[in-house]
Amino acid sequence: MDNMVDHVDEENVNQVVDPGKGVPSNEDATPGFELPLLLFAGFRTLIERLHAELARQGHPDMRPAHGYALQAIAASPYGATASDIGRRLGVSKQAAGKTVDRLLALGYAARADDPADARRKLVRLTPHGIDALSRSAAVFDELRADWAARLGPDRVRDLEAALRAVVPAETTFRLDATSWLGGA
């Protein structure tokens, strides 16, 4: 996305401008489209660095969706059903089921009988899945420390507090991004 449609004028219906160029010098006049792009780029940078490090540490098959699903499974001390995982992540039971199948194949999770209802199957983390989550947490701490070293710890804390103030708590950990990015 090198160029964006920034505004409309009388001669050129859609004027294309480079991000950060063609904008008034007023500090508060940053184009509105830059904020979501910067937030997304920051997210992608962190996630890509995380997965590169996880690959180096013995988890080359881990993908972002796997990590979120592992967290959803770990949220329950007894395990979770595919429906539970789907609800926690904001995806369909079928999408959650596909992710669970992949986690099972990779050895990150295992199925177990539900002690409260023999008809239900629970998904539980294996030692390999627990290791991946532990390593992810450590790497995220390192990535946050890197941002704090670059920006200063107060600015990182302020950024986190500001985002908590504007992000509704119920959407913080939803994965249904494909629905709003134009996917199926």
Rank of each mutant, 00 (worst) to 15 (best):
D2V: 09
D2T: 13
M4Q: 13
M4T: 13
V5K: 09
V5T: 07
D9L: 08
E11W: 06
E11M: 08
N14K: 09
N14S: 10
N14L: 13
Q15F: 01
D18G: 14
P19L: 14
P19N: 07
G22E: 07
V23P: 01
E27Y: 11
E27F: 13
G32Y: 08
G32P: 00
F33P: 03
L35R: 12
P36N: 04
L38S: 06
L39N: 04
L39P: 03
L39R: 07
F40G: 04
G42T: 10
G42H: 07
F43K: 05
I47F: 02
R49G: 11
L50I: 01
L50W: 01
H51A: 01
R56C: 10
R56G: 14
R56I: 07
Q57E: 14
Q57G: 03
H59A: 14
P64H: 12
H66C: 09
H66I: 09
Y68R: 14
A69Q: 00
A69R: 03
Q71M: 13
A72N: 01
I73F: 00
A75V: 07
A75F: 09
P77I: 09
Y78C: 00
Y78N: 12
G79F: 02
G79K: 00
G79N: 04
S83M: 11
S83C: 02
S83P: 06
I85A: 05
R88I: 05
S92Y: 03
S92C: 05
K93V: 05
Q94C: 11
A96F: 02
R102S: 13
A105V: 11
A105W: 09
A109L: 00
D113R: 14
A116N: 14
A118R: 10
A118M: 05
R119K: 13
R120D: 13
R120A: 15
L125E: 10
L125F: 11
P127G: 08
H128N: 13
H128Y: 12
D131H: 04
A132I: 02
L133D: 07
S134V: 04
S134D: 07
R135Q: 15
R135I: 09
R135G: 04
R135T: 14
S136H: 06
S136W: 01
S136K: 07
A137D: 09
D141F: 02
E142P: 05
E142S: 07
R144P: 01
A148Q: 12
A149V: 03
G152M: 09
G152R: 10
G152Y: 10
G152A: 11
D154L: 13
R155F: 11
R155S: 13
V156E: 00
V156K: 05
R157Y: 04
L159N: 07
L163P: 00
R164G: 05
F173N: 04
L175Y: 02
A177L: 10
W180Y: 13
G183P: 03
G183T: 01
A184I: 03
A184T: 00
